[in-house]
Simulated assay, not measured.
Amino acid sequence: MSKKDAAIHKRQQIEQSSRVMFLWVAGASVIVGFALVISWFLVQQIIFKERVLGEKNNTAAVLKNNNDAVEKLRGELKVLETNSHLNASRINNDEKALQVVLDALPAEDNALALGASLQSKLVNGVAGVSLDSLNIDQTDDSESSGSTGAAASNGNLQSIHFTMEVSASNPNALRELLQRFERSIRVIEIDRMTIERTDSKVAMKISAHAYYSPAKTIELKKKDIKP
Score class of each variant (00 low, 15 high):
residue 16 Q to H: 12
residue 76 E to K: 09
residue 19 R to W: 01
residue 94 D to Q: 15
residue 65 N to M: 08
residue 128 G to H: 02
residue 23 L to H: 04
residue 98 L to G: 03
residue 134 L to T: 04
residue 102 L to A: 05
residue 82 T to Y: 05
residue 37 V to M: 14
residue 126 V to R: 04
residue 86 L to H: 14
residue 83 N to Y: 10
residue 80 L to T: 03
residue 46 I to G: 08
residue 60 A to I: 00
residue 55 E to S: 08
residue 64 K to P: 00
residue 76 E to G: 01
residue 63 L to H: 09
residue 93 N to K: 15
residue 75 G to T: 15
residue 29 S to R: 01
residue 49 K to H: 10
residue 17 S to Y: 02
residue 73 L to R: 06
residue 34 F to G: 03
residue 113 A to H: 09
residue 120 S to G: 12
residue 125 G to Y: 14
residue 51 R to F: 06
residue 44 Q to C: 10
residue 127 A to M: 15
residue 89 S to K: 15
residue 97 A to S: 07
residue 65 N to K: 01
residue 138 Q to R: 01
residue 121 K to C: 12
residue 24 W to I: 06
residue 38 I to F: 06
residue 76 E to M: 08
residue 88 A to W: 12
residue 44 Q to W: 08
residue 49 K to W: 09
residue 112 L to R: 13
residue 73 L to G: 05
residue 48 F to H: 07
residue 15 E to P: 03
residue 33 G to T: 12
residue 45 Q to F: 07
residue 89 S to L: 15
residue 16 Q to I: 06
residue 88 A to M: 12
residue 70 V to H: 08
residue 140 D to N: 01
residue 45 Q to I: 05
residue 83 N to R: 11
residue 68 D to L: 15
residue 60 A to T: 02
residue 97 A to I: 03
residue 129 V to P: 03
residue 86 L to D: 15
residue 105 L to F: 03
residue 93 N to I: 15
residue 73 L to M: 09
residue 87 N to A: 11
residue 124 N to S: 11
residue 118 L to C: 10
residue 92 N to T: 14
residue 128 G to M: 06
residue 107 A to E: 08
residue 117 S to K: 15
residue 115 G to F: 10
residue 37 V to P: 13
residue 61 A to I: 04
residue 67 N to E: 11
residue 135 N to T: 14
